[in-house]
Design a binder for these strands. Structure first.
Lengths: 205, 205
DNA sequence: TCACTAGTGCGAGAACAGTTGCATTAACAT
DNA sequence: ATGTTAATGCAACTGTTCTCGCACTAGTGA
């Protein structure tokens, strides 16, 4: 029989708060189960038993992080919406301390964290779909434009440069990615392939 | 005085081979200095002294990985070239065992590995620039088209979905990303912004 | 109020990562 | 060949991470 009441919930809150505080103060590398437990005023064993490892802790933090009311900005144009979105992604990936980067890094160390990050992004991209819906209504892009590929096209270059290649933020990168995606979308690049569409054979590779 | 001869070189080869073998057999999570040293028939201390940690080992593997004669395929069209490139990236990110993914994961654990991965990708993208040069010569894209943003736009969605979001390879994803980039490039989306170009202000976010 | 038990605290200890001092080996120059 | 010394082998040591068994605390239902 589960006991979500009093102590269990209180300890969970204490521990997750400690994780966020440790993350902010000392970064991800210093995030150990021991430090979290000590800061939360809880015994190590309790943390190991309930969260298994650092990845489990971060996965729990992820899940609670998704419980907000975030919505993409509505600027009145597809390009404006994508620019605003990319500004926010850029800010998240370059913030100090690098909490977002820490969570991405953790997702490569723990299956739990990876799944939690996947759920988080899935949720965020779902909330962004109205951007494309509004663009269709305004006639900026053809009906049948697929939201996900368009959103991925607009945002992926930022993640690629900042999260994967670990290069500094290039001025104009966010804007160029948004411009490119909006332009490609307006020419119908993201409409669903006609049934039976197959990729052209690129000859011998 | 340095001694690149006999023993030093031989041990380096043994150890790096052991790293690759461990990576292939047991994945990244099981990659410990001890396991590598044992497999290479070398003492732990030697590995610690020369490579410092697991990240140093992987950085060395990265650097040797760049010592090949890889060149992008020349299919005769920009779209074909990008499709071929994405096919190779897709294959690398989904290969079994996931050696490439293991190296990407390692780059989040070690600064050395991250820098080595950066050098590797920088080298690869540099080798891909002729793709854009040929497209300009054929008149497929306007002169002044920037190679890097175009290549990033074509390849980033693959990395985003497979490496970051850890989702399965969606059929047609590689082809759609290549198509989009080629289409956007042909409309001049990747020409250098005119001097003084600034991103439109997206109003309040 | 009182038994029941999920969840927690505690300490011992195993397992692993990483370091240090010293002896030994073998590449290089002469 | 022979001495020099960079590089390696070896063993003992430190410190951290993680597990396990048992006692205890505090929600929960009667």
């Amino acid at each position: 029989m589960s006991r979500p009441g009093g102590r269990t919930g209180r300890i969970r809150r204490q521990v997750l708060d400690a994780v966020r505080a440790e993350l902010v103060e000392h970064g991800y590398d210093a995030l150990s189960v021991d430090a979290v437990a000590t800061r939360a005023g809880v015994h190590r064993t309790t943390v190991y038993r309930r969260w298994r490892d650092v990845g489990g802790l971060l996965a729990d933090v992820f899940d609670t992080a998704g419980d907000d009311a975030w919505q993409p900005a509505d600027t009145g144009s597809l390009l404006g919406d994508l620019l605003a979105l990319n500004d926010q992604i850029l800010a998240a990936l370059t913030e100090r301390p690098p909490a977002t980067m820490a969570l991405i890094a953790a997702s490569f160390r723990s299956e739990d964290a990876a799944r939690a990050l996947g759920r988080f992004w899935e949720d965020r991209y779902a909330r962004c779909e109205p951007i494309v819906g509004r663009a269709v209504e305004r006639g900026e892009v053809p009906p049948g434009t697929l939201a996900r590929p368009l959103l991925i096209c607009a945002t992926a270059p930022l993640y690629h440069r900042l999260a994967l290649m670990r290069l500094p933020a290039e001025p104009g990168l966010a804007a160029m990615a948004a411009r490119t995606a909006a332009l490609a979308a307006s020419t119908g690049a993201f409409t669903a392939p006609e049934p039976g569409f197959t990729a052209p054979e690129p000859g011998d590779i």
